[in-house]
């Protein structure tokens, strides 16, 4: 069975073909650049750019996979969570193509896609495991007893970890205000100069809070007269260290509480090299699973896979109505 996956929930347009026999046949991603001058994703610009790019990506994905429309058995598209306008573009395309080709379609939860992304790798984890999904919009720990059976262990009570990175980029006035710039400059930072609190690590609870860290960053930054790049790097290091140590501690706690021994790392912040390194150090290489970097960020390979899995469980869209779920909860 071959599934075409379509992803347009935020600022990446993507298409991919997954085959249950041969694995991933192709995947194409276009990262939007229209937002760079705005310091963050602009919802309306995102939706318009998806309209321009997504059909071309679908054609490219089909040709790279050497598939015609007759070879595709179903279409999976992200229906949420995400930006309403952006989701509408992919959902509308997915349903329309399914109707025109007379194939079934299936709405996919973007977070389930992230959670299942490591399944596309050769060393795929086997449930049960704990998943840390950490991105610009989400920070949550999920107990995965089997695919499709999820229990929320903890989540952020305010800002997501990726959002905290993005906002610190803004506070420190770094490049294009993206969290990855904080991670980049942190590599040059003095590891001893500043120490920020590890929010909510004194309790056994598995929730996160990253909003207060911004304020700490702001205070330290303001207390420096005429800050130079090195000062920013030192603050960025201390901030990243605080976030990552918090994430690592909570992951360990989650594994203890559930008595599981495998951790799956997913979502955009999962691309952070230092987070990967620290998790491997603390939990052991064999216990941590993550997808390749390009499948941490938004992509359609994970959507095609999650779509295939749901279809294999007998689910599919039952009507032609296009309905997006910007706040669709995984659990």
């Amino acid at each position: 069975m071959k599934v075409l996956g379509i992803e347009t929930s935020c600022d990446e347009s993507a298409a991919a073909i997954y085959c249950d026999k041969d694995g991933l046949l192709s995947h194409k991603v276009y990262s939007q650049t229209v937002h760079s001058e705005h310091g963050g994703v602009v919802p309306e610009l995102a939706a318009r750019d998806h309209i321009r790019k997504t059909l071309g990506l679908i054609e490219d994905a089909l040709s790279e996979a050497k598939c015609s429309k007759d070879d595709v058995d179903a279409i999976a598209y992200t229906a949420g969570p995400g930006l309403a306008g952006a989701l509408l573009v992919g959902s509308m395309m997915g349903k329309t193509i399914a109707y025109a080709w007379n194939k079934p379609s299936i709405a996919v939860n973007h977070m389930e896609g992230h959670l299942l992304a490591p399944m596309l790798e050769d060393s795929a984890p086997k449930p049960p495991f704990v998943a840390l999904i950490v991105s610009g919009g989400h920070t949550m720990l999920v107990d995965v007893q089997q695919i499709g059976e999820y229990r929320l262990l903890g989540e952020t009570v305010d800002d997501a970890a990726g959002e905290a990175f993005d906002k610190v980029a803004r506070l420190l006035n770094l490049g294009k205000y993206t969290g990855s710039e904080v991670a980049k400059i942190a590599e040059l930072g003095d590891k001893k100069r500043f120490k920020f609190p590890r929010p909510m690590t004194k309790t056994r609870n598995l929730d996160f809070s990253f909003s207060g860290l911004k304020t700490k960053v702001l205070y330290e930054y303001q207390s420096i007269e005429n800050p130079v790049e090195q000062d920013k790097a030192d603050i960025a290091w201390a901030f990243q260290e605080a976030v990552i140590e918090t994430l690592v501690k909570k992951c360990k706690l989650a594994l203890q509480d559930t008595r599981l021994n495998a951790l799956v790392l997913a979502g955009g912040v999962g691309a952070n090299k230092y987070l990967r390194q620290r998790l491997a150090e603390e939990l052991g290489d064999n216990s941590v699973f993550y997808p390749r970097i390009e499948f941490c960020t938004d992509n359609a390979a994970m959507i095609a896979y999650a779509g295939w899995w749901n279809l294999s469980q007998g689910r599919k869209d039952l009507s032609l109505a296009v309905k997006v779920k910007p706040r669709w909860k995984l659990v």
Partner: peptide, 10 residues
């Protein structure tokens, strides 16, 4: 309950 930041959801 939790009060999440609306930055990403508007």
């Amino acid at each position: 309950g939790n009060v999440k930041s609306p930055t990403y959801t508007i």
